[in-house]
């Protein structure tokens, strides 16, 4: 679960005064959740890593504006992450990306990667394939709730919906996911 709000508040206060180490602590707390959110929607790990860094650099640049908006920090980060992802899709049309079969499991020189890495890549491809069968809002709610481990309240803030609406959406999304898994099998 991402860090407590009190801890966040203190680190944000220091980061707003220009303390990059405090922002580094915020990064350690929240980067794993942001990474998982991005990786669940991207074809490869390198892109997810690059975009995670980009999200936090944008967050650093927008930090002075953050207090004025009064949004919880995690929701603020996930909104940046969502916008960064949208920009990424615009810049690199997904259809034009290299097909996973052509690259996954091999280094540039053609030697195979370790078995563990290949297994993880295949697992990732399977996750993407299943999630991509769902409606975008189902994908978002499941990714935020179960992959990034946000609370219903935080998810509601990120998706700009009420907590009740998130609960209903999650209920339907889980059922849809189960159906998608059945189809896959």
């Amino acid at each position: 679960m991402p860090g407590s709000q009190d801890q966040d508040r203190e680190l944000i206060r220091r980061a707003q005064r220009g303390d990059q180490h405090a922002f580094g602590d915020l990064y350690v707390i929240h980067a794993p959740a942001i990474f998982r959110y991005l990786f669940a929607q991207l074809e490869n790990c390198m892109d997810a890593e690059d975009l995670t860094g980009e999200v936090f650099l944008k967050a650093w640049q927008s930090l002075p504006k953050y207090m004025e908006r009064g949004v919880p920090f995690l929701a603020f980060l996930f909104r940046i992450a969502h916008n960064t992802l949208v920009d990424h899709y615009r810049q690199n049309n997904r259809l034009e990306q290299q097909a996973p079969d052509e690259m996954d499991g091999y280094h540039e020189d053609g030697t195979p990667e370790p078995v563990e890495t290949v297994g993880k890549l295949l697992e990732h491809q399977k996750i993407l394939a299943v999630l991509s069968k769902l409606r975008p809002d189902y994908q978002s709610v499941l990714t935020l709730r179960f992959i990034s481990e946000l609370s219903p309240e935080e998810t509601a803030r990120v998706m700009k919906r009420s907590v009740g609406a998130i609960r209903v959406l999650q209920h339907r999304a889980l059922a849809a996911l189960r159906e998608a898994l059945n189809e896959k099998q």
Partner: peptide
């Protein structure tokens, strides 16, 4: 479905050392 997502979470985790190294880069 929730159990499948929980397992997926592990598959989507960052590679070892990534957070530490990228923190330095970010700073």
């Amino acid at each position: 479905a929730a159990l499948w997502l929980r397992d997926a979470r592990f598959a989507l985790a960052t590679r070892p050392g990534y957070i530490h190294d990228s923190r330095k880069y970010l700073e």
